[in-house]
């Protein structure tokens, strides 16, 4: 098995710039305009506060019991 990339693909993978996430916890989700990013930041906060086990989520690919809403 080879994980060597040809030069064309390597260029694609390397062309993006790095992002510094070190101070992410200080971002208030409410100031974020992008609703998808805002929801993700809120999700991070919720999960950081929650019990660290993953029992609150169905990790299986089944799409039945994890999503918002529910009974």
């Amino acid at each position: 098995m080879s994980h060597k990339l040809n030069s064309q693909v390597s260029d694609v993978l390397n062309e993006t710039e790095a992002v510094d996430y070190a101070d992410l916890p200080s971002i208030d989700p409410e100031v974020v305009d992008n609703t998808i990013l805002r929801a993700a930041l809120e999700r991070v906060r919720e999960r950081t506060k929650a019990d660290p086990h993953m029992g609150h989520y169905t990790k299986h690919s089944s799409h039945s019991s994890h999503s918002k809403g529910g009974w």
Partner: peptide, 18 residues
């Protein structure tokens, strides 16, 4: 779900996707 979980991971949270 998959994309949301990757976003959460990128923002420093834990994934809920196996």
């Amino acid at each position: 779900r998959l994309l949301n979980e990757i976003l959460v991971l990128m923002l420093g949270g834990p994934s809920a996707h196996e």
